[in-house]
Design a protein around this nucleic acid. Structure first.
Lengths: 226, 226
DNA sequence: CGTCACTTTGATGCTGATCAAAAATGGTGG
DNA sequence: CCACCATTTTTGATCAGCATCAAAGTGACG
């Protein structure tokens, strides 16, 4: 593992409280790999035997229902995932696949469960991380129940701009089909909604998004509510 | 506190691993009360200074968005809630109100946070409880994104029948307006959907539900998927 | 027995899904 | 560098699901 990666891991909320000794043990037991795009990392319903940590690339957490499919969220580095299942020993509630080529670290779940019992600081971190995840899914659920498609889109753009925008510009990190699924609409409707955003201060050109009028967009998104 | 209540608490997954000493300390610091129906217990966005435990009655976890409102879930006893916010020290992502007269125990969040650091068994329980909650919300989100209204209704009936059905009968535990909001539809549509269920082996009469053909209902709900 | 809240029913319209097909895009090999 | 192909995206037409509005029916309770 590269130096930079180890220090990124160390700074991850989840591992910051870990003793040096436990952190070293964790790195010893962990496996590092590059996986190609579209690699399925784990499947819904299975109990994972590892915790996954995304170091580079994007990972899609999705679910299937018959022949329909929906992406629940797209993870960016550096981020641990399936923590709830790995620590709780519970079946995964979603599947995961690499959306791009991705660098993944896997840590044996048994090791983690042991550490949670022994290292109080770590168990606090785990509880905190799970709390944050819980909050994120809840917010997503609220968004799905209370907002219309274009409102969810506006919100997504504002949040995406918040972490990867440059000036008043934003470049879509993945294709529109995935974005549509992420937001909870069909690709056709996403296309139409993006066109509609012109009336709300946003210009779209391919994957490039220009936020001409941030206030108008925020008004559509009803930022502040929820 | 009554004997029965204390033992119910002791058997709650969250507290089962607690040392006798810590459990006693927790009871010492806790406050017990009856609250009337409609009491707002906590509001979205605030950091709760207590963990709540529902001992009797029903509690509605809901959210507002402008003038719209949606109930995210209805809790039954015995169940702890806002654990994520209380332990993580994070703002609540939903509001809570008593749906009926309810018996509520509150435990200072500071006490809990201390225990999470000191008692490894308890921190494991917290992590497990949070994992389960995370799973529940995720399943709810998937249901919302992938199922139609009547499918969600069928699923709700099957699950409700699972925990409070008697024979092939089920009595709605709260009014239809709340159920509609819980499932994610309008009261009008719930009414129509309930009527439609007749074609799927379910007879509805007021709050009484008769499942004539469990297989047909399960087929509609597509149990097994997800 | 009247009032009030809840529920049902009907009519109508919007939001978003589906189907079909054209247009744009991006990658590949000649 | 260009032509070709596959894939993604857009556009248009149509349809289903669901919300909204209005009004009638039902039931609980003082």
């Amino acid at each position: 593992m590269r130096e930079a990666e180890a220090s990124q891991l160390r700074n991850l909320g989840l591992f910051r409280g870990l003793t040096e000794e436990n952190f070293t043990a964790l790195l010893q037991a962990a496996a590092l790999q590059w996986v190609p795009a579209q690699t399925v990392l784990l499947e819904e319903g299975k109990i994972p035997d590892s915790l996954f940590i995304l170091l580079e690339g994007l990972v899609d957490l999705f679910t299937r229902y018959g022949k329909r499919e929906s992406t629940l969220t797209v993870l960016r580095p550096v981020r641990a995932f399936v923590l709830a299942s790995a620590v709780g020993g519970l079946p995964c509630v979603q599947s995961a696949r690499a959306l791009t080529r991705a660098r993944i670290l896997t840590v044996p779940a048994s090791l983690l469960r042991g550490m949670v019992g022994r290292d109080p600081a770590f168990s606090r971190s785990v509880a905190r991380e799970l709390s944050v995840s819980y909050g994120c899914v809840s917010i997503e659920l609220k968004s799905q129940k209370l907002r219309t498609g274009i409102e969810r889109l506006a919100n997504w753009i504002i949040r995406a701009h918040g972490h990867s925008g440059i000036g008043n510009r934003l470049s879509l990190p993945f294709d529109k089909r995935t974005l549509a699924s992420r937001i909870g609409m069909t690709p056709e409707n996403l296309s139409r909604s993006l066109a509609q955003l012109d009336k709300h201060g946003v210009t779209v050109n391919g994957r490039e998004i220009l936020i001409r009028d941030h206030a108008a967009l925020a008004k559509l998104a009803k930022t502040g509510l929820i």
